[in-house]
Amino acid sequence: PPAPETSPVEFDSAISYVNKIKNRFLDHPEIYRAFLEILHTYQKEQLEVKESRGNRGSSGMTEDEVFSKVASLFKGQEDLLAEFGQFLPDA
C-alpha cells in the first residue's frame, strides 16, 4: 500500500504508467521485467542506505542513474521516457 503521504493522484498516475508500460511491451516482456528490476533495485538500495546511514560510503542508485538506465531500456519510446521523467524529483 502507498505511504499515507502519497496522494491518490500520484498513486493513480503510477498505476496507469506501470500499466501503460506493461501493455506497450506485451511482445517484449523482458523489457517490462527489466524496468521493474531497475525500480526494485533502486528501492532496495535506498533502504540499505537508510539502514547503514551512509556508513559504507555508498549513496545507492541515484535518480539520475535510474533515469539513464530507463532511458537506455526505452530507446525509441520517447513518450514513455518523458512520462517517466515526470515522476523524478529532479526532472
Partner: peptide
C-alpha cells in the same frame, strides 16, 4: 481492475514515492 504481481505493485509504490518527493521538493 488490474492484474498486478507483487513486483508490479512495488514499481507503483516506488514511482508514487518519487512523485511525492518531487511534489515535496517543489512546494
Amino acid at each position: 481492475s488490474y492484474d498486478f504481481t507483487p513486483l508490479d505493485s512495488s514499481a507503483v509504490y516506488v514511482l508514487s514515492s518519487m512523485a511525492r518527493r518531487r511534489r515535496a521538493s517543489q512546494s
